[in-house]
Amino acid sequence: MASDELFVSGHRGCAGCGMATAVRMILQEAGPNTIVANATGCLEVMTTGYPETSWKVPWIHAAFENAGAVASGVDVALKKLGKRDGVNILAFAGDGGTFDIGFQALSGMLERGHNITYVVFDNEAYMNTGIQRCSSTPPYASTTTSPAGKVIPGKQGRKKPIANIVAAHDIAYTATATIAYHGDLKKKVRKALEVNREGKGPAFIHVFSPCPTGWRYPSEMTVELSRMAVETGIFVLWEQEGSDPRNRKISCPPKEKRKPVEEYFKLQGRFRHLLKMPDIIEQIQKEVDEKCENLMQ
C-alpha cells in the first residue's frame, strides 16, 4: 500500500496536520499523471527541505501569491508541447495564499479558463509564519496578530466566503470538503479532475484542514474537529456546477441535529476566551443557524 502513495511519509509536518492527510487523499485520487504547483506555506516548507521531498509526482513551488499563475504557465506549456493529454494539473495553496495574497492570481486563472483544479487547504491562519490572522480566520479566533486581549476578543471581521466568490466566477465546478468525510473529499476530487479532463475549465475545492498547532488542540483530535466543524454547521459541505447557487448540493445538518457551536469552540485554545463570553457564543450560534437555514432553502 505505502509504495503506491504519491505523497509519502517522512515530511516535517506537525503530528495531526489535517492538510497532510488531505494531500495524501487527494493524490491517491488524482494518481501519478499529476503535476502540482504549490504556493509557499506550511505544505511547501514541510515537504521539500532540499535534498529531500515527499512528492512522487512532479511538483513546483515558486512563491506565495501565485499558485494559480504558475499552474497556468504549466498548463499552456504542456499544451503547446503536446504533453497535456491525460495529465492533471493541481494548484495547492493555503488559505492565506488563496483568500488574501494569491486571490488575484487565482481569479485570473479562473477567468482564463485553465483546466486546472485549485485546492485551498484552509487552516484558518498564516500558519507557516506562526499563526497570524488572515481573511479566512474566523471571527474571534485568537492568533498572534489577533490576540484575545482585555479589550479586543480575538479576530475582528468576518471569514471571507471564498468558495462563493470562486463559484461566482462561473466556473464549472466548486466544492467544499474536509478530511473527516474522506469519501466525499475523494469523490469531489474525482469530479473536479473530470471537469478539467472534459475541457470545461477550472475546478476549485475548499478543503477545511484543522491545525493542532495553530488552533491549540491535542493532535489526535484533528479528524474529530474536522467532523465537528461540519456537525455544528460552522463549515458546510457543498458542491456546485456553474455559478447558479440553485445548482448547489448542500449537506448541512438540520437544526435539530446540529451540534452547538460551543462544543466545537471548547476543544480549541484559540477560542478558549469565548467560553467566558456567552453573548458572543450566542451571537455566533445565531449567525451559523441563519447561514445554514439560508443555504438549505
Binding site: 501565485n66 499563475a69 504557465g73 481569479s107
Partner: peptide, 21 residues
C-alpha cells in the same frame, strides 16, 4: 497567456519554462 498582472506573467513564465517551453 494574457495574465491579470506582471507578477502573474512572470509566475506563469516560470511554470511554463519549468515545463520545458
Amino acid at each position: 497567456l494574457l495574465t491579470e498582472s506582471e507578477h502573474s506573467a512572470m509566475s506563469a513564465a516560470i511554470g511554463a519554462s519549468a515545463a520545458g517551453a
